[in-house]
Design a protein around this nucleic acid. Structure first.
Lengths: 179, 179
DNA sequence: CGCAAATAGTTTCCGTGTCAACTATAATAT
DNA sequence: ATATTATAGTTGACACGGAAACTATTTGCG
């Protein structure tokens, strides 16, 4: 049992790299050819990598204000999107509903948001920010923006626009396909 | 205490949206102007969103094979990058070393990888895949590729190339700036 | 040499993300 | 009206991720 390898020039990390440093000889039947450079899987892999890294990085930023990144995202969305239900938040932020429920609980305990029963449908709750929530949000947002600028400093202006457009497209795809 | 709001047309989610549905009147002093459309923070936010979504999605894929997405990523990297140390894996995958240590332990328990003390430096361990590991990796990779294709189906070919290039650039930035 | 600092990896503790099962309300069917 | 199904949100169990503290080597330096 050895690996199928196609020797080429130095490549980068990814799902279907073109070079495997060791084991130059193929002594193994190619049951599954190593996906002819599966670009899509590479993107997913890279997005995961960047996402996880950014999550750690932004968590340390938000922690200064006693929040986690997800909690801040929810607070941010509530501030901007006015009274909004958990359902709507889930859809906008691509969150898991049980997770969101717990985040909401924490934000409530911290008195950063307020909750009201939706008129006309008592299942639904409408969330809105408190003055205290807005104050914390402002401070945290400033720090968040600062770190974001540092992290994205390598991107040129047109690249920034391009990334934004593409991520928006992906989000849309996820929203429609998501479970 | 009310929000500073600039009314405009319907906008999308993000850090500096141009419309706030409710509260059309600004009755609050703009202590901090709402970052003149902080594009960078928006990108970070979107990357986080997509990353978290993809993590859930790929986790369910990997779970069919008894793995989590991160475990699969590590296995994948070990398969492609031959005998490799935890340190190197951390750098390539942008992982936390304590987390990686635990993942390695799990993969060892499942007998998917093998460990050897590095010659010349007994602190370091060199990880390589076992036949069993390769077999599982193949199956999991196939499923992973399939899901990736589905998730990325909205992207055109040139967009795929563009995203790849930009993510590569971001990774590089993260690697240099990371802590 | 011998001791301090750096490096690779591990462990501990805690918070939290996820799935599945559950409650409560609303919509739909009979 | 009543029963069934769907929807919004909650809870509990459990495993995992992350920061910090820790161990064990190696390197650097006086």
């Amino acid at each position: 049992m050895r690996l199928l390898v196609e020797m080429e020039t130095k490549s980068d990390v990814g799902f279907t790299p073109r070079m495997k440093p060791k084991k130059p000889k193929n002594t193994r039947t190619p049951k599954r050819k190593p996906g002819p450079s599966d670009k899509e899987a590479q993107i997913v892999q890279r997005l995961l990598k960047c996402g996880q890294f950014l999550q750690r990085e932004t968590n340390t930023v938000c922690r200064q204000f006693g929040l986690k990144q997800q909690q801040f995202s929810v607070l941010n969305e509530i501030v901007w999107q006015g009274p909004i239900s958990q359902k709507a938040l889930c859809e906008r932020l691509l969150f898991e509903k049980s997770n969101l429920s717990k985040i909401v609980k924490i934000l409530l305990e911290k008195k950063l948001i307020r909750v009201a029963v939706a008129p006309g449908d008592r299942r639904m709750t409408l969330l809105s920010e408190t003055p205290k929530g807005v104050a914390l949000w402002e401070d945290c947002l400033q720090a968040f923006n600062q770190v974001s600028n540092r992290l994205m400093s390598l991107l040129a202006d047109d690249e920034v626009a391009g990334v934004t457009r593409l991520l928006k497209k992906l989000e849309k795809a996820f929203k429609s396909q998501g479970r």
